[in-house]
């Protein structure tokens, strides 16, 4: 029964919720990790969603594809896969639709609550560790969030940029540049070659263009362009980018 429905893009865990689980189907984390990283997991780690992050001298750029997809259908072409957590922390997310926004807004609300209670803002590293803790807690629950995240921020004290990579298993890694989804396979090598830690904002944008050009050239799907946001010591702002630029395939 599940085979047919799964082929329609529905996840077994969701179906089991709907149809009721077999009494003997007691799921342990071993099984969950296997589920999430085995053959079905490929679907998750290589979703047609693009998330890119670049940290430079005094800024962090986060870019996310604008297409909201369900199977092969584009439901929305102006989707915003980012949420601002406080004045200088921004989070970009991809993964199971529904889980993503639910989790992101839960984090956003708790970050806001902390700011109101304490009249201070959490530093990017504090936010990252909080997010990781919540995701790790959810991983060992009956229905974990399947969300991949990039967290970009400027430390308000020393004005240093921070970029954190978090996957759906809640592994946390601080990085100079990061990607999720298909972008990993196409962009990480480009970033390896061209990124340097004290690059200027203009160089950062040029680097991003290099990455998106490659995606346009090599990805067979249309991800409807990128939404680009930058975090600086003055806060978060959207950067206008030309998404209509035509890139000739090699």
């Amino acid at each position: 029964m599940y085979g047919v429905l799964e082929r329609l893009g529905l996840r077994r865990s969701k179906l089991q919720l709907f149809f009721g689980r077999k009494k003997s189907a007691k799921r342990r984390l071993t099984q969950q990790v296997a589920d999430l990283t085995g053959a079905p997991g490929v679907k998750l780690t290589a979703r047609p969603e693009v998330l890119l992050g670049i940290a430079g001298k005094d800024f962090v750029i986060l870019a996310a594809s604008k297409a909201a997809m369900r199977g092969p259908t584009v439901l929305k072409a102006e989707d915003d896969k980012t949420r601002q957590l406080n004045k200088h922390t921004l989070m970009a997310f991809s993964g199971e639709s529904g889980d993503t926004v639910q989790f992101a807004e839960y984090i956003q609300a708790n970050a806001a609550l902390y700011s109101m209670r304490n009249d201070t803002e959490l530093s990017p590293s504090a936010v990252a560790n909080f997010v990781r803790g919540e995701l790790a807690r959810s991983l060992r629950s009956r229905s974990p969030y399947t969300v991949n995240l990039l967290l970009g921020g400027i430390d308000p004290v020393n004005e240093k940029p921070h970029l954190y990579w978090v996957d759906y298993l809640a592994s946390l890694a601080p990085l100079p540049y990061a990607a999720h989804g298909y972008a990993q396979y196409y962009c990480l090598s480009i970033l390896d070659k061209h990124h340097h830690p004290d690059c200027s904002f203009e160089e950062g944008l040029a680097l991003l263009t290099l990455c998106t050009d490659e995606l346009k050239r090599r990805l067979p799907i249309d991800y409807k362009g990128m939404l680009v946001k930058v975090v600086t010591k003055d806060g978060v702002r959207e950067v206008p980018v030309d998404n209509d630029k035509v890139v000739r395939s090699a």
Binding site: V33, R132, G133, L169, A170, S171, A173
Partner: peptide
């Protein structure tokens, strides 16, 4: 598993 390396060290 990296997530547990993080969790257990914390």
């Amino acid at each position: 598993l990296a997530t547990d390396v993080n969790t257990v060290s914390d």
